[in-house]
Design a protein around this nucleic acid. Structure first.
Lengths: 358, 358
DNA sequence: CTGAAAGCGCTTACAG
DNA sequence: CTGAAAGCGCTTACAG
């Protein structure tokens, strides 16, 4: 172990096979132009010697640029969530820039389906080596995936999964299971017989299987663990504008439906701060309020105690991992798992600080 | 961005300075034997051109082996915790093996101070390039650190911090803050006026500032948030054998002290399964039981509901990050933060599966 | 179908 | 104190 364990190299294989290194390289990379028997012989030796290429030497010698593209929702004040995944992607890109990988970032308007498909088309036109995609609109995603397949461009889905697509991997959370977590947390908080509320704040144009799965997981927990409560869960759907803000009428929509003091409330996405501010305004106390994601406004309400738990989905790591998945697939030739579920982080006031940069 | 952004290289600097690449290399690595004015000139150009070395080419050319050593407690059935950090270290080592970094693992008996110091001495004698150390015994650690300093061997502490040592970084959890988390979780669980118990299960020979800090954090939470409860917290110290098992008399020690049905119990380390099994045996119900770490036996009790929450400290990532810290410090020449606090993960039955490999 | 040679960016004796 | 040259392991035209 003292010496740099003398690995077998291309020249070893070449001399064993009685050919030149160039020929060995040709069979390693399937570049053709090699006689079948030469090829077999070399392949045999490679297996026998357990050859592993030296990636450093390889990327140094082949100065070809690998271009990875990302297409994510633009993050802004309405939509701060997406800043972190983008940052994670950049961090990964920076870490392995020595391998000659270049990142090309693209963004679309989260609330605009046309923006999604036109940006996706632009990305495809550039023919990147690989693509990280937030498949917010599933129909448009399917269309794009056909083109990408033809061009042989591998795709990693980030944050949301779309079924029946040939993405090489999905990096994100398990939404059903995170709903289960939310349910158990509320179960800890509540001790009387008041009812529970699930609040979905979304705009209808969005494909929201993600949110539906969270709700399903939540209900499933109680069906399994507490039949009485399972019978006292009401869902409230709030319509948010295309801008991402809930209607001016959030109050109007919410107030009549929030009959009496609720035991606990589960908000199925990051919009939980709207509910928190509503509760504060009308001085409504709940035993438990649970929502998603460490947005600045959510953090405020977590710290002041109006929100009890936030569930976080490692947005930065989603980005980092997506990029690395592509890198390992294309450069290191390592296959990734079809689904890479990230942990379902439970955040309280006390451990919040340790998650902010994740 | 299309082309592999043409970085400035040593030859660029050399030609600008009117010297050979060898000379530039000498000043870059401070190998001396360069005239002062040549040196200044080259340094100036390097700054001006914002030169960044190509680590790939560098490690390819200099085939010197970098040897990183680790010294951790041996993990066995009594002490399964330490398997994960070791695995994290190995994973990191494997990931960057192309950079010519070699890992030398060493282990000591967690419950034997002499084993610690003799193994530490062995490691030092081998003069590794860097060291990852679990500083379980603080006195012996201090002694070793003096030698390591003389040999100019950088050290990363993993899992526990020792104050006033010149380790380049600490990778682990913030114990005080994790006690706060435990307290808040129990605060969610309990709703009557029964008392709380803190149970420390340790052998006295161990330096356990870590555990004391967890207790402090726990008490601090209630002092701040709930004066009544703060006055009803009792600490029970259980003496565990040198083998790591609590005495046969765990029952005898615990039973008389666990007066009446406790509202909640906080076990300050991974031995919480002992308490869980005690509670089951005597059919004692608590509103909340919280402990540390995802040991197999703890997982069982979490799944069956006897344990409500486990706090996990990313043991695998502790290892991974420690190794990478050393690598970045020595090979990439990047400084690390003095303290790298890992998240305080809150685990329930529902999100457990997503943390097992972390 | 195959080999010889130059080159990727940096490091390392060696000669002076 | 400095330079010229060979080499790290792999890739890439080019010539045949």
């Amino acid at each position: 172990m003292e010496e740099n364990l003398s690995r077998v190299k291309i020249s070893d294989i070449a001399s064993r096979a009685g050919v030149s290194t160039g020929t060995v390289d040709r069979v390693i990379h399937n570049r053709g132009e090699v006689a079948a028997k030469t090829r077999e012989k070399i392949l045999g030796i490679i297996r026998e010697l357990n050859y592993e290429p030296d990636i450093l030497a390889s990327t140094l010698a082949s100065k070809k640029a690998v271009r990875f593209a990302s297409l994510l929702p633009a993050s802004d004040e309405q939509n701060p969530f997406w800043a972190a995944p983008a940052e994670g992607i950049r961090a990964a890109a920076n870490e392995i820039r020595h391998y000659g990988v270049v990142l090309e970032e693209h963004f679309f308007n989260y609330h605009d389906k046309n923006s999604f498909s036109s940006e996706l088309q632009k990305v495809i036109d550039k023919k990147p080596t690989g693509l990280i995609l937030a498949p917010v609109y599933s129909g448009e995603t399917a269309t794009g995936m056909e083109l990408l397949k033809k061009l042989n461009i591998p795709v990693v889905f980030i944050n949301a999964q779309v079924e029946e697509q040939e993405n090489i991997s999905y990096v994100g959370q398990d939404p059903f299971q995170s709903g289960m977590v939310a349910a158990h947390l509320l179960d800890f908080c509540i001790h009387d017989e008041a009812g529970l509320f699930i609040i979905n704040i979304t705009s209808e144009t969005l494909g929201n299987t993600h949110i539906l799965n969270r709700e399903k997981g939540f209900r499933h927990y109680f069906s399994t663990n507490n039949a009485f409560r399972a019978g006292h869960i009401r869902t409230i759907n709030i319509n948010s504008e295309l801008t991402g803000e809930p209607n001016k009428t959030l109050e109007e929509q919410l107030k009549p439906q929030l009959t009496a003091s609720p035991a606990g409330i589960f908000v199925t996405n990051s919009k939980v701060f709207h509910v928190a501010s509503f509760l504060e305004k009308f001085n409504i106390k709940t035993a438990g309020l649970v929502g998603y994601d460490l947005l600045g406004r959510n953090q405020e309400f977590l710290r002041n105690g109006t929100i009890d738990f936030l569930i976080s989905q490692k947005p930065r790591e989603q980005g980092y991992k997506s990029f690395m998945t592509l890198f390992n697939h294309m450069v290191m030739k390592k296959q990734a798992a079809r689904e890479q579920f990230l942990p379902i982080d439970i955040i309280t006031k006390e451990n919040l600080d340790f998650y902010i940069n994740y």
